[in-house]
Structures are given as structure tokens and as C-alpha cells.
């Protein structure tokens, strides 16, 4: 038996919006730790890892580990039927082939439930080693989103370089080229407005802007994004989900042919 009650239902709505364009079908794993997902996009260039810890739910019952395969576009359609202030409960029976999403409005005078068929998906879990990154940059998520959007009007790829000067985003296209540098800035009114650069070694890597733009769909989940870079590893863009966990996006760099 699985029963997860999330008071802040809008979080789940936002999580699905953040993932549904990147990943079509995915297995949600439910265990004592929490509600999680790991999935790659269809071209195996990017990977998303989600964790919503059990402590973040008002009620969390998971008698045994369950894997539930779902089409994220369909889940997103169902969650669009929930109001932003609704409480969302996810229910499933052990060994069953359906999942139920129940929505309660704040006044508790409207209760909806939607049952959805589960899918049998091949599980492709990848081991993500703990790594020491050359550079870790925390910046406002809205700023990162703006930069990715602006640069994609000029080019298809971005070179992200971190030096002592700051983090530089560069692109080139038919009409010309563009560089945006964000310097470390900790003299701000609120900590979430800061740009904080931790650099062990300078690093410069090239990425497809299309994927970075897709990651920025998670912007509404967190005011900050943490970008981790190492020359031998995929980029990690992490959006923390307050009191609950995170959504992390991994993107393989472009490599010399």
C-alpha cells in the first residue's frame, strides 16, 4: 500500500512541468526514503534525477518499495486538473497496475480523483558517482534562465567557462557572437540574489542550449540554481525543492570529435 499526501500540491505540478518536455516515460520509485525518479531523455544526452523526501509529505505510507511507470505528459495532464492550492494524495496498491491521484481543495468541499494505468518500463538506473567538481556556481535561477533564453536567439551551443573572473556564457551564430559574464556578487539584499563562485580549477565546456533551456522549466521550483562543472563530467544544474529535496539535471558536454 502506498499513500502519499502532499499539502503543497503545486510543488508536484511544477515538478511535472519541469520534466515533461525532457522525458516521455519514467519510473517513479517509492521507498522509505522518499518519492524519486531517474530518467534520461530519448537521445541519452541529458538525465533528470528527482527526490521528494518522505519527511516533506504530511502523510507518507510506503509499505514496500514500489516502482511505477508513467507517461509524464499524461501525469502532467492530470495534475493540471488540480488547483494550485490543492492538497494532492497519490495512492497505489502493492502489485496493482494503477495509480490514483486525489485532489482536495483548501475548503475541503471539492474532492477529485483520477485513476491512471501504470506502464511496464525497462528500468535503466545509472550509478552517479560522487564527484569533486572543478567549479560550483550558485546564481539566481531566473538569471540563468534569462541567459539561456537570450543566447539561444543567437546560437545553438554555449561555452560555459568558469575562471576567477566569474562564469562566462559564450555563443556564436550566423548573426554574430555574444558573451555574458556573471561575476561573483555576494553584496546583495537577499542571499538568493547572490552569485557565488567556488572554483578549484578553471573549466570550460560546451553544451547544447536546447537542453539547458529545457532545464530552466524548473525555475519556479527554486530561486537559485547550482551549476557544477568538471572537465570530465556532465554539467549538473540543481534546483533545490524547499524542505523536500531536489531536481537535478545532468547534461553531457559536446566533445572534440
Amino acid at each position: 500500500m502506498l499513500e502519499l499526501r502532499l499539502v503543497q500540491g503545486s510543488l508536484l505540478k511544477k515538478v511535472l512541468e519541469a520534466m515533461k518536455d525532457l522525458v516521455t516515460d519514467a519510473n517513479f520509485d517509492c521507498s522509505a526514503t522518499g518519492f524519486s525518479l531517474q530518467a534520461m531523455d530519448s537521445s541519452h544526452v541529458a538525465l533528470v534525477a528527482l527526490l521528494l523526501r518522505s519527511e516533506g509529505f504530511e502523510h507518507y505510507r510506503c509499505d514496500r518499495n514500489i516502482t511505477m511507470g508513467m507517461n509524464l505528459n499524461n501525469v502532467s495532464k492530470l495534475l493540471k486538473c488540480a488547483g494550485n492550492d490543492d492538497i494532492i494524495t497519490i495512492k497505489a496498491d502493492d502489485g496493482g497496475d494503477t495509480v490514483t491521484f486525489m485532489f482536495e481543495n483548501p475548503k475541503q468541499d471539492k474532492i477529485s480523483d483520477f485513476e491512471m494505468k501504470l506502464m511496464d518500463l525497462d528500468s535503466e538506473h545509472l550509478g552517479i558517482p560522487d564527484a569533486e567538481y572543478h567549479a560550483i556556481v550558485r546564481m539566481p535561477s531566473l538569471e540563468f534562465s534569462r541567459i539561456c533564453k537570450d543566447l539561444s536567439s543567437i546560437g545553438d551551443t554555449v561555452v560555459i567557462s568558469v575562471t576567477k573572473e566569474g562564469i562566462k556564457f559564450s555563443t556564436r551564430g550566423d548573426i554574430g557572437n555574444a558573451n555574458i559574464v556573471c561575476r561573483q556578487n555576494t553584496t546583495v539584499d537577499k542571499p538568493e540574489e547572490a552569485t557565488v563562485i567556488q572554483m578549484n580549477e578553471a573549466v570550460s565546456l560546451t553544451f547544447a542550449l536546447r537542453y539547458l533551456n529545457s532545464f530552466t522549466k524548473a525555475t519556479s521550483l527554486s530561486e537559485t540554481v547550482t551549476i557544477s562543472l568538471s572537465s570530465e563530467l556532465p554539467l549538473v544544474a540543481e534546483y533545490k525543492i524547499a524542505d523536500m529535496g531536489y531536481i537535478k539535471f545532468y547534461l553531457a558536454p559536446k566533445i572534440e570529435d
Partner: peptide, 14 residues
């Protein structure tokens, strides 16, 4: 020239 890397060349299936 550059080509797009793949996640599977960095992380292994478990």
C-alpha cells in the same frame, strides 16, 4: 569539430 556526448559514456548502468 565537436560532437554531442552521451550520458552513458559518463555514468554506467547499475
Amino acid at each position: 569539430d565537436t560532437k554531442q556526448g552521451k550520458i552513458l559514456s559518463f555514468f554506467k548502468k547499475i
